[in-house]
């Protein structure tokens, strides 16, 4: 399979201190809620880290700043990764993480734009982010503004027909200010994407829809930085970046395991095992 070298590299990628720290913020969130989409969160972390650290323009104290780049986490179930970045950047207080999924919390199991500063669109139902992103990218063009729109999707999510409807529209409108990133961890809820709904040849699909396409090891921070510094990949085309990742990356006992897609009753022992794997608890 064409993705194997990227996948092997993703498997082998080592996580630096910041990647481990962001994962500990995710564990803090999981601990607070006693539940969460673990595997889907951890595969995403470097993609979001690089977007927030190195790529996107935004102001945490002014989340509605008109010139900000727009970011939509279309795979809303990976929200814990975004919450970790929003807390790290100061959009939300770190203490909010521990309230995850509690009755009056701002942070729930899917991101809510009505409650969370820095969340552009409420997602959770899959296949909604790219169409919305197409509209936002058109709006930026209509206004003659330079902001870009980043939409992060799951691989399973791209089973949805609405993703490809939006891809057609993005190609038609030549939205070079639109960047679709796919967290290609190769596991959907039930099992391997290759068995449940194989999307290969995946890069070719995006090319066929008139996207400029790149593939990258989604845990390689340097490679992500280099790629995302060069946007758009091609003038007059939207960009698709297929990020080869490992579901559960950073937790050896969860990596590549479909049963770690979501956990609803996390035990204290499991939480401790996660902290141990990530370098231990942070002491404030």
């Amino acid at each position: 399979m064409s993705h194997t070298p990227f996948h092997n590299a993703a498997q082998a990628a080592l996580l630096d201190a910041r990647s481990r720290y962001l994962r500990r913020l995710a564990v803090e969130t999981l601990e607070g809620g006693g539940r969460g989409h673990i595997g889907s969160t951890l595969s995403l972390m470097e993609i979001l880290r690089v977007l927030y650290d190195d790529v996107m323009r935004y102001r945490p104290r002014q989340p509605d700043w008109a010139e900000r780049d727009r970011f939509i986490l279309s795979k809303g179930h990976g929200c814990i990764a975004q919450y970790a970045l929003l807390a790290d950047k100061g959009f939300i207080p770190r203490a909010a993480l521990r309230e995850f999924c509690r009755q009056h919390a701002i942070l729930g199991g899917h991101p809510d734009a009505n409650k969370i500063p820095g969340v552009e669109a409420s997602t959770g139902a899959l296949g909604h982010g790219l169409p919305i992103g197409v509209g936002m990218a058109l709006a930026a063009r209509l206004r003659g503004q330079g902001q870009r729109v980043f939409v992060v999707m799951g691989d399973g999510e791209t089973n949805e027909g609405s993703v490809w409807e939006a891809a057609m529209a993005a190609g038609k409108h030549r939205l070079s200010n639109l960047v679709a990133l796919v967290d290609y961890n190769k596991l959907q809820s039930y099992g391997p994407t290759a068995e449940v709904q194989d999307m290969e040849p995946f890069a070719d699909k995006w090319r066929a829809f008139n996207f400029a396409v790149a593939e990258v090891n989604g845990h390689d921070v340097e490679a992500l930085r280099a790629l995302l510094a060069a946007l758009p990949l091609e003038d007059g085309r939207p960009t698709a970046i297929i990020c080869h990742t490992i579901k559960g990356k950073g937790l050896p006992f969860a990596e590549g395991r479909a049963d770690w897609h979501h956990k609803s009753k996390l035990s204290a022992a499991e939480i401790e095992a996660m902290y141990d794997a990530l370098g231990g608890r942070d002491h404030a």
């Binding site: 669109a121 209509l142 609405s162």
Partner: peptide, 20 residues
């Protein structure tokens, strides 16, 4: 747009989020 209602409603949402 083409015959893609799911997309054109999402597109409209994106445009409306931006003030259109």
């Amino acid at each position: 747009e083409g015959i893609n209602e799911a997309n054109f409603i999402g597109m409209a949402a994106g445009l409306a989020m931006e003030g259109f």
